[in-house]
Design a protein around this nucleic acid. Structure first.
Lengths: 242, 242
DNA sequence: CGAAATTTTGATCACGTTCAACTTCAGTGG
DNA sequence: CCACTGAAGTTGAACGTGATCAAAATTTCG
C-alpha cells in the first residue's frame, strides 16, 4: 500500500503481514451504497480506483457530503469503529477496492504495533481533513468554497498520481459539489462560471485546468497540509519487540 | 485516565505505563494560547478541568472554531501529528491539563500496542466529531445549529460528569458559539431567545436547563454517538505479546 | 466604582436559496 | 436515424435567512 508507505517505514515482514490480511479486490458499480448509515460495517477498505462520497442525510431530505473519497483513501474510517455506522458511503463511479476486516487488522496490530500507529495516522489525517472542511463551510464565501474544493481535490488526486501539475479530471457532478459545500446547485454553477470568467480555471469536457493556481490559492486561503511521519522505535524498543 | 478506560481494558501494567508517561499537571490561564498554528506542538494533553477551543483564523479576520474542548478531551490531536500545527487552541477559561510528549507515547506504544490502538480510537472519535460539525454547519438552519450545539455540549459534559440529566453550566460566550457555528453573534443571540420563548430551554445565570430535551433532539436532528470498544487480543495473540 | 466584555435589540442589506424553465448531452429503443 | 428518456448543466426572477452595522443595556471584573 503506497499510502501507508508514505507514513511509515514498513519492514518486509510488515508489508507481508499487511498483504496477507487483504482480501481479494472488490468491484463496485456506480451509485451503489458501500456503507449504509445505521448498519454495521466492520471493514477497512482502500480505494484503488474510482470515486466515492461519505455523507449523511437529514430528516428534511438535505444531504451533506462529509468528503469525497479518491484513490488512496480509506473507507470505514470512522464508520467501522462504531456499533453502527454514523455516515453512509456511496460510489460516485464504478470502483475497485481492496480491504480487510477491521478485526483482522486489529489482531495484527497487537503483534505489529507499527500497524496500529499507522492506523492512528490515517485517522488523524481524516480528522484534519474534516476540520478543514468545517472551516471551509463555516467561514468562506461561496466562491472561495468552490475554489477551495477544486484545489483540494487537485492536491489529493495529485498525491494519488491522477493529476498533472495544473489540471485534473473532475469526476463529480455539480450536485455532488453542492452537497459537499453546503450550497445549492445553481449557485455552484454560477461560481464555477465566475471562476471561468475570471480566468482562474478553464474547463473542457470533464477536464479542469487551473490556469492561475497562484491566484486561486490566495482566493481560497488554501494551504496544503503535510502529515509528519511516524517516528521509528529506538534501538532499545526494537530489542523489546524482537 | 477515565477516558481511556472507557475505550479499552487496560491491565494494571498498562495503566502504570501510561501514568509513568504523564508529566506534572499544568495550569493555564484564560485567554492563553495552548497551540499556535504554524508552530510545532508535540504533546498529547488531556483536559482535566476548564474549557478550550480549537480554531483557525482566515486572512479576512474571520475565525472558525472547529470544536470546543471540555474535560476529557485531548489537545494535540490532530495538531501534534503535523510538522506544524494546522489549528490553534486557546483556553476559554483557566484550565488544568495533564499530558505527555507524543514521542514518549509512541515509544510506549511500540511496547504496548494497546496504547497505539487507544490512540487510534481517540483520533477516530475526533474525526467523527468534526464530521458531525460539518453536517451541522452545512445543512442545518441557524436555529437547529444552536440547538444541536447545546445538545452536543451537554452530552459531552455529561460524559465527563459535569452535567445533570437535563442541565449544565454553559461556560462559553455567545461569541464563541457564533464562531463555532459559522453564525454572527446577534443571530446566535436571537436563536437562543427563540429557544427560550419556545420553552425548549431556560437559562439563569450561566446555567442552561433543557426543559424539553425530546423536542430539542427532534428539532436539531440530534443523535448521540457511541464508540465501540477496542477488541481484546485473542489468547493466541496474548501469548505472542507476553 | 469605572472599564471592559458580553448580551440584547433594531434597521438595512446582501448573499445565496428556491423554483421554474430551458439547454445540452449520452444512452436506448423504435 | 430519429425520437425518447433521464441526468447534468445553465439561466433568470423573486424571496428569505442571516449578515452587518450601530447603539443600548447588562454583566463581569480589575
Amino acid at each position: 500500500m503506497a499510502r501507508l508507505r508514505r507514513l511509515v517505514d514498513l519492514t518486509a515482514a510488515d508489508t507481508d503481514a499487511v498483504r496477507s490480511l487483504i482480501a481479494a479486490e472488490t468491484h463496485i458499480e456506480k451509485r451503489r451504497d458501500l456503507v449504509v448509515s445505521g448498519y454495521q460495517y466492520s471493514k477497512l477498505s482502500f480505494v484503488k480506483d474510482g470515486v466515492a462520497a461519505r455523507y449523511k442525510v437529514l430528516r428534511n431530505g438535505k444531504r451533506q457530503i462529509i468528503n469525497v473519497l479518491v484513490p488512496g483513501d480509506v473507507i470505514g474510517l470512522p464508520g467501522s469503529f462504531f456499533d453502527q455506522a454514523t455516515f453512509s458511503v456511496i460510489a460516485l463511479s464504478d470502483m475497485t477496492l481492496e480491504g480487510c476486516s477491521l478485526d483482522a487488522f486489529i489482531a495484527a496490530s497487537y503483534r505489529r504495533p507499527k500497524l496500529a500507529l499507522a492506523l492512528s495516522w490515517l485517522a488523524v489525517h481524516e480528522a484534519a481533513t474534516y476540520a478543514e472542511r468545517v472551516v471551509d463551510i463555516g467561514r468562506r464565501t461561496a466562491l472561495e468554497r468552490v475554489a477551495h474544493f477544486l484545489l483540494e481535490i487537485h492536491a489529493r488526486l495529485k498525491l494519488a498520481g491522477r493529476a498533472t501539475d495544473t489540471g485534473f479530471e473532475l469526476l463529480v457532478s455539480q450536485e455532488v459539489m453542492s452537497d459537499a459545500l453546503g450550497l445549492s446547485v445553481p449557485h455552484v454553477n454560477r461560481m464555477l462560471a465566475k471562476l471561468r470568467n475570471d480566468g482562474m480555471i478553464s474547463v473542457s469536457d470533464r477536464r479542469v485546468e487551473l490556469t492561475s493556481l497562484q491566484a486561486m490559492q490566495v482566493l481560497a486561503h488554501f494551504q496544503p497540509v503535510k502529515l509528519s511521519r511516524i517516528p521509528e522505535p529506538t534501538a532499545r524498543e526494537r530489542e523489546l519487540i524482537a
